[in-house]
Simulated assay, not measured.
Amino acid sequence: MSSSFLQQNGATILSLTIEHLWLTAAAMLFAAAIAVPVGVWLTRSPAWARPVIGLANILQTIPSLAMFGFLLPLPWLGDRAARIAIVALTAYALLPILRNTYAGIRGIDPAVMDVARAMGLTGTQRLFKVELPLAASFILTGLRTATVTCIGIATIAAAVGAGGLGELIFRGVASVDNRLVLAGAIPAAGLALVADAVLGIFERLLTVKR
């Protein structure tokens, strides 16, 4: 991309990058707010683990364009493209967070939990003082995977008018202009790499020897 192209389109690229970040961040907040509590609940009700994680797995396998298409007719979503994008991205982010929360807590050494019970900790205290701290790195790994996935899938949100860097990619494909395609693809890839690196740092910091 030439400097003149960047001068002409720099403001648009920046605006769409911020829009892309907003869509991804909103979806990740909703996904974490749903998947972490459900993952904790599944550790208490393991009989439900297979069907619930299986459902999240099915959502993950639906092609992104098809997912957006399924959501378009819904009256409470179809009138706002951003809502469609956030709901779809949330659905795609559920599986890694849910699975890692469940696996992280279930993988804690039973002897540690026995000690916590012997100390008189209640179920809530064990959750917040023992289980979540020990499973934090696993949960963050799921968040890391989900964030990178959402950043990539969010480019498809432009197909339903939700904005984001996908707008530049779709415009470039329609006009056979590789500069526009790269103007959307490079920042999206950069966002994914930065998010992966930052969350990777937090993941290492939160890693606790079990």
Rank of each mutant, 00 (worst) to 15 (best):
A85N: 06
M67A: 07
R80G: 11
M119Q: 09
G78H: 08
R83T: 02
L89G: 11
A81Y: 14
L121T: 10
M113R: 08
D114E: 13
I86C: 06
T90Y: 14
R99F: 03
I62S: 03
I108N: 00
Y92V: 11
G78E: 10
M113P: 03
Q60I: 09
A66L: 10
I86W: 06
A66M: 14
V87C: 06
V87M: 01
A116V: 03
V112F: 09
L77A: 09
G78S: 13
A66S: 13
A91D: 11
G123K: 08
F68G: 11
G107K: 02
N100D: 01
V112S: 12
Q60M: 08
L74W: 15
L71V: 08
L74K: 06
T101E: 07
L77S: 02
I86V: 15
A91V: 06
P73N: 14
V87R: 07
A66P: 05
D114R: 08
F68R: 07
F70Q: 14
L95M: 10
L72E: 08
I108Q: 00
D109G: 03
L77Q: 06
M119N: 10
S64D: 07
A91G: 15
A93L: 07
N100E: 01
T61A: 10
F70T: 05
M119K: 09
G69M: 11
G69N: 08
L74G: 08
L65S: 14
R80Y: 09
L94V: 00
M113V: 12
R117Y: 01
W76P: 10
A66E: 06
V87H: 04
R99M: 03
I97Q: 13
A85D: 06
R80K: 11
F70A: 15
L72C: 03
I108D: 00
V112D: 07
L77V: 12
P63S: 08
F68S: 07
R117L: 10
T101I: 04
A88G: 15
D79A: 11
